[in-house]
Design a protein around this nucleic acid. Sequence first.
DNA 1: CTCTAAGCGAGACGGTACGTCCCGTCTTCCT
DNA 2: AGGAAGACGGGACGTACCGTCTCGCTTAGAG
Lengths: 226, 226, 226, 226
Amino acid sequence: MPSPAPTPRRVGRPRSAQADAAIMDATRAALVEVGWGKLTMGYVAARAGVAKTTLYRRWPNKGELVVHAVAALFDELELPDRGSLRGDIEGVVISFARMLQRPETNASLMAVVAESTHDPLLREHIREAIVDRQKHLVLQGRERAQARGELPPDAASSEENERLVDLIFDVIAGAVVHRTLVSAEPVDEQWAEAFTTLLLHGLVAASAPRGRGEGGSEGGYQDGSA
Amino acid sequence: MPSPAPTPRRVGRPRSAQADAAIMDATRAALVEVGWGKLTMGYVAARAGVAKTTLYRRWPNKGELVVHAVAALFDELELPDRGSLRGDIEGVVISFARMLQRPETNASLMAVVAESTHDPLLREHIREAIVDRQKHLVLQGRERAQARGELPPDAASSEENERLVDLIFDVIAGAVVHRTLVSAEPVDEQWAEAFTTLLLHGLVAASAPRGRGEGGSEGGYQDGSA
Amino acid sequence: MPSPAPTPRRVGRPRSAQADAAIMDATRAALVEVGWGKLTMGYVAARAGVAKTTLYRRWPNKGELVVHAVAALFDELELPDRGSLRGDIEGVVISFARMLQRPETNASLMAVVAESTHDPLLREHIREAIVDRQKHLVLQGRERAQARGELPPDAASSEENERLVDLIFDVIAGAVVHRTLVSAEPVDEQWAEAFTTLLLHGLVAASAPRGRGEGGSEGGYQDGSA
Amino acid sequence: MPSPAPTPRRVGRPRSAQADAAIMDATRAALVEVGWGKLTMGYVAARAGVAKTTLYRRWPNKGELVVHAVAALFDELELPDRGSLRGDIEGVVISFARMLQRPETNASLMAVVAESTHDPLLREHIREAIVDRQKHLVLQGRERAQARGELPPDAASSEENERLVDLIFDVIAGAVVHRTLVSAEPVDEQWAEAFTTLLLHGLVAASAPRGRGEGGSEGGYQDGSA
DNA sequence: CTCTAAGCGAGACGGTACGTCCCGTCTTCCT
DNA sequence: AGGAAGACGGGACGTACCGTCTCGCTTAGAG
């Protein structure tokens, strides 16, 4: 996919790539310093050594600029193969948490999400730039686990499949985000292990064929010892 | 400590309780209409039929006003006894989700949380007003389940106990919030059921005595059919 | 004229004379400190150790309060008989200037006059409280000079008489005020003497019967030496 | 000193001269309509068809704006040569009074002066913008009269000279201002003539060599008839 | 010698204007 | 054409006073 864009006009002086990078850096730095609410275009521009005009030539408003700057941070999320489902989950939990604990991400993610609650375009923007990117990791991990025989293969209905992936994604991302940003407690190895244990057992049940799942409630905690 | 509650000696004209209520209502209504970002003190005041100064006499700024207005919404969260752990979990998930889906909560919660990422006082405010209030529900549900024999009694170490409650809280609240606000998908009965199933199995494992928890990873999905 | 007021009601607690005095003092002190523009009722009240209500119970607004406080200062103006018209003029000039140089008067007079330029009621108030009181001194001095034979007796027309008194008053008060407040130079003995000399010669001409007055322009300065 | 006046290197969008003029006009109009006390920046801005910020970009506060607007009015003061000292004095008196009677000047001058009583910078501002400009007229008139032989040439001491000019200035300006603003009576031809007569005789005496001036007090009013 | 109408301190109230900050747009000149 | 500089129209901010309005307490004179 080299360049489907139909020749984007090449007249006049080209945009400075240097400016671009400086702006991204300045935006992230400013987010750390003052947060979304007090972040001003003027300050970003000044810090980047650039005129305000230059910002507006690239992004239509504050929101877009910040989302753009934040989204890039999510690119580094990866899912190294640790050989087991448990290992993979713990890995992603810890690496996701590590990212969220960096102040620029911390401050930015929630700010951007909050802004999105009454801005559908921004919400779509976030979905593309952040959510889908992360969801891909869940899929990848699941496939590996299935290959290893740790999880049953895909259900018949692809719709049901997607629902399951979405659920797992919301549980993992939700728990990590909530602990980091709302409870404001660190996601350390201990927490990651406990969470993984919880998830792992749930996963097995959730992935099992329908009609069996609700067994948990009756079985009680004596279940395992039988 | 000479006087236990010495009648705070109110002098001068007392604050109007009417105004207080009108402001809270106006704030929530305004949040629905325009969202956090465009909510203005002037508009809230006008809508409440009150002078802007009256707002500032009670709350030092927009943030505090909104947190206050939003926090009250969390008071209505309850945990009706549905007779089983599964029922209780589904109940709280759905009622929490229902609350989050109401536009005023939707817009406000994240906004307020986002604001808190660089405002420790606000963060403490949130913890008191919202987080602790919710955590209480988790405790309550767990006690009921223990009484019913659905979950094992408290672990020996109270520290470990607290860790577990915190974990469960982050998982429930996180998943619901994430699905509602980030994934922007509805929390319907179907999702609540699937989530509950997942959580239920995880819960049993997580609540079990240490040293057994990690069994899940090896056992695989064939576990149940053995 | 002992009390034409038809018994001004004597029920209830009478107004505190102490408060009255404290308010007047506080007002004048505040005028010195911050000037009219920044003088606030709250500050005057606080400084007088009195509630704002107490101020408004006595004067309907800031303007009236200040005029009242300032007018009292003019009461002390007197015209001691120095035995000659020249002496009397120098005396009044210096004592008037001395009053104007006191910071509370300095700041207040112009402020009040300025305020009066678009407030006819206040203007009338000033005329009664300040202007007429001063004009009386001019009349008194003139009568003494006439008695001494330094000035001709009143003209036939009383209207013309009044015009003359007004003119003299405007010249004296105007010159002193202008030097003090606009030119912002001190009215010392030297200036007072020079001004008196100027006025004295003018006075003789102005007081002379009509039809002769314009002689000055032709006569030139050689006039006296002839 | 490499560059004597290096072309101040104007960068960025220049200030709109149109806006400048509109603001001055609006300020003067507003002064007439509502007076100093009720003049608001918002109203001036609206009337000028300009944003409030544009006002504050040019003047730091209401006071400076108004002084600036008013000072310009004094530019039109001139001293047309009427051929005689008497004529010149009457001319300047009447044209000065005419200016003061215009409502915008009326309201503004005193307000600005009042404000200056506790603001040394403003006072200096006024001196430069208004007082010095007027004093120049006195000098000019005196020189003409000296050339015509109506007044004696400058005294030996230049210091004494300056004192005399200042005195005359305070008398003329003071009398006109006082009559207009404090006594609140019109300066008509009749008053101007009477005042001029008074001043003219005083002038001759005051301009005469020292040691003779005080003669007036003894001579009495019979002086002229001898 | 009580009763009671007014005075009083305190401070909340509805308002108006302030002067500031930032937004996103627009000129102007320079590269 | 891009970019730096900065003025512009606009909107909201949070503050400061205004003059009014409860409150509950105090106080002196009328009954």
